[in-house]
Design a protein around this nucleic acid. Sequence first.
DNA 1: CTAGTTGTCGATAACGTTATCGGTAAGCCA
DNA 2: TGGCTTACCGATAACGTTATCGACAACTAG
Lengths: 346, 346
Amino acid sequence: MKDIAKDLGVSVITVSKVLRNHPDVGDETRNRVLARVKELNYQLNLAARSLVTGRSYLVGLVVPDLLHPFFAEIAKALSEVLRKSGYYLIVTSSDEDPELEEQEINQLLARRLDTLIIASCRTTVDLFFRIQNQKIPYVLIDRWLPGLSSNFVGVDDEAVGVLATRHLIDIGCKRIAHIRGPETSPAIGRLQGYKRALLESGMKIVNDYIIAEPKGDVESKQRGAEAMSRLLALKARPDGVFCFNDPLAMAAINYATKEGLRIPADIAVVGCGNLHYDDSLRVGLSSIDQHSRQIGEEAARITLSILNSKVPPAPESIVLQPELIVRESSQRRPAMNARSRRRGPR
Amino acid sequence: MKDIAKDLGVSVITVSKVLRNHPDVGDETRNRVLARVKELNYQLNLAARSLVTGRSYLVGLVVPDLLHPFFAEIAKALSEVLRKSGYYLIVTSSDEDPELEEQEINQLLARRLDTLIIASCRTTVDLFFRIQNQKIPYVLIDRWLPGLSSNFVGVDDEAVGVLATRHLIDIGCKRIAHIRGPETSPAIGRLQGYKRALLESGMKIVNDYIIAEPKGDVESKQRGAEAMSRLLALKARPDGVFCFNDPLAMAAINYATKEGLRIPADIAVVGCGNLHYDDSLRVGLSSIDQHSRQIGEEAARITLSILNSKVPPAPESIVLQPELIVRESSQRRPAMNARSRRRGPR
DNA sequence: CTAGTTGTCGATAACGTTATCGGTAAGCCA
DNA sequence: TGGCTTACCGATAACGTTATCGACAACTAG
């Protein structure tokens, strides 16, 4: 910038003004500056700018797993909307590791971003108080934490559980199991919904039918298989399973199929996430759609409203209603007549 | 930092030194500073640091599509390796749009990152000369551009084409088609490999068997279906198809199946990317593995070697050899006897 | 003609951090 | 004791940009 100014016989300030589209500069000067900028292939230093303006035009997104299409889609939607308003999204993944998540968030805070958007894998609230201390606004997505009144965008997880379970009841399942997720709000909510739907239909809650996800870094393929194997070992084998997410559901279906069971005839399965596997699956997977794109868009909207208002607005909470998509894996079961009873494993 | 220094009766410099683990500070002072840092919940401003050091410890990654597992996996590997050396990866997606890609790269350049890693969707080199002007080192991945001698990490695309095509020849296919990708180096290389394998086996190249990907923002599902429909409309219907990538291959299989054909009996299919659909697919997809994780790791290695050496090292080019994974969709065809001839569409 | 307005430009200082170098005190060796 | 090294600390200036305000000229209105 100094060079350009010297070359053209103007001040640095004037060059700066041109680059910010500040009105205080004449057309002729502006054009001369712009020409020289192109010529020298000059690049503005945004770090220096943000140092003096106090704004970075950077929005950070922390997700537990970038490989998961649910979060990838949210990231995409966020990025598209924010870009239109001149903000830039930087995405990082915590790999479901709370410690790594903290490191990443610290990095982002040190970069002085304007807003943080987080799908946290933490179960404690302390980190968020630290963020609040830094006066950096944040929006939680997908997962919330009890005792934290903040912006939130996500789906009604209890409704997810109710929707899936009630559907399984509707198609005639009598013994409905649930393969649950890790100890975060979505898993807790869906489990609650599962229980509520059962109770409302006068069915009992059987603890053996609720399979906790094993801890650790295992692939969902293995986890789903293990969960299903435990279910199949039960004396009173379930005839319907609601799985925490689609990969888990697919793995469960695969295992059951290998064991000679038919989906949905022997066991109906409903997943969650509605990943678009199209028609390629052996068994089309019924699933609950979580409106990931909409989550991203709403989070972007809240973010922009925070950034545009001088005083921080009151925390907003957007809870979307899930939607059931019925496919082959939960087609209505035939009534328990002779023909269907003939079918068994192997 | 100023506050901490004043509080403790030391200089700002000393505080700075503590935070950089500079040896020039006594244990007692160091501990007092660290204690106060924790207490005040102080956050370093990396923008200011990078302003004076000239280093941002930021590495940028631009990919055409974050939703694609191939790139997501590369991003993950890169991030993991770089983090260990104190570098931070920031990921952006160009959505296969050259203009958007330029915008994103400009943003990154303005943020003064230390290295750029790009899977470019451009066909011209001008942008890269501009990057070179900025003296910012960069590494191309997956896709390279002719006339550009730079660091590169990717797979041997011609070998991909040869591997897939030769495999189809080996299992007895006589009329082999290719559904190709967009006008970037991978698609060009694979097409070349396809042709070479055919010629080496004494087979002819039939232009009708080479289906160009339609331009525009269509989903690969639709593109694959359209391509397959064109192949099925030919008088001499192909009995083997090599597809540019797995989603395309899956879509093609789905379409063919709906039309009553059997995979692989009527048409064998080989994809590329080896996405891990596990056993959930209706037809297990044979595919060429591109070693995405390894690409990420190699790119990270090159990046670090650039950043650690004072003088820019000579451009490196890492070309990985692809690997064929045979699954159901390209099982060996039975010889053309009466039994197999009986099978037809519908 | 005067007073006010508008349009254009620049000087100064600041943002938060670190590189470089110089200084002081204490300890060591001969 | 004197000179040397080592350990610890700080002053100054700089990185590239912009906020704030003031200055000057050229109009405009009355």
